[in-house]
Amino acid sequence: MSSPIERTGTTQRWSDTVTHNQTVYLCEVPEDPKADIAGQTLNVLGLLEARLKEAGSSKSRILSCTIFITDRAHIAKFNELWDAWVPEGCAPVRACVVADLLNPDWKVEIQMTAAVA
Rank of each mutant, 00 (worst) to 15 (best):
25 Y>T: 05
5 I>N: 08
47 L>E: 15
108 V>T: 07
98 V>C: 07
34 K>W: 10
73 A>N: 10
51 R>K: 12
115 A>I: 00
80 E>S: 10
72 R>F: 12
53 K>N: 09
10 T>M: 11
95 A>R: 13
95 A>E: 14
32 D>Y: 15
62 I>L: 07
34 K>T: 15
98 V>G: 05
114 A>H: 02
31 E>H: 08
94 R>I: 12
63 L>Q: 11
71 D>N: 15
11 T>P: 02
31 E>L: 12
92 P>K: 03
51 R>T: 05
39 G>Y: 06
15 S>T: 01
95 A>P: 04
39 G>M: 02
108 V>A: 03
67 I>L: 05
63 L>T: 12
104 P>R: 09
46 G>Q: 07
87 P>K: 04
56 G>Y: 03
8 T>N: 09
37 I>S: 02
105 D>S: 10
21 N>S: 15
51 R>C: 02
34 K>Y: 14
62 I>N: 05
25 Y>G: 02
64 S>W: 06
66 T>R: 13
42 L>V: 13
38 A>D: 13
2 S>Q: 14
96 C>L: 12
5 I>S: 08
103 N>G: 04
92 P>G: 01
55 A>D: 00
25 Y>C: 01
54 E>A: 15
27 C>H: 10
88 E>T: 13
20 H>L: 08
111 Q>D: 12
100 D>L: 08
26 L>W: 00
9 G>Q: 05
8 T>C: 02
104 P>C: 05
60 S>R: 12
77 K>Q: 15
3 S>H: 14
54 E>L: 14
104 P>G: 05
53 K>D: 14
69 I>N: 03
42 L>C: 07
60 S>G: 09
11 T>V: 06
91 A>T: 10
86 V>R: 06
103 N>A: 10
97 V>I: 15
76 A>Y: 06
14 W>C: 13
73 A>K: 11
85 W>L: 00
28 E>N: 08
27 C>P: 02
19 T>V: 11
41 T>H: 04
95 A>V: 13
104 P>Q: 08
80 E>D: 11
103 N>L: 10
7 R>W: 07
28 E>K: 09
88 E>L: 09
78 F>L: 07
74 H>D: 13
89 G>M: 04
31 E>Y: 09
88 E>V: 14
17 T>S: 14
88 E>C: 06
4 P>Q: 08
34 K>N: 14
109 E>T: 11
6 E>V: 15
57 S>L: 03
90 C>I: 05
70 T>F: 01
58 S>H: 03
22 Q>A: 12
89 G>Q: 00
18 V>L: 14
116 V>A: 04
110 I>C: 00
12 Q>F: 11
107 K>C: 05
93 V>Q: 11
70 T>E: 02
114 A>E: 04
24 V>Q: 06
15 S>L: 01
102 L>S: 13
37 I>L: 00
84 A>T: 06
50 A>R: 10
116 V>P: 03
82 W>S: 00
47 L>T: 00
42 L>W: 06
13 R>N: 15
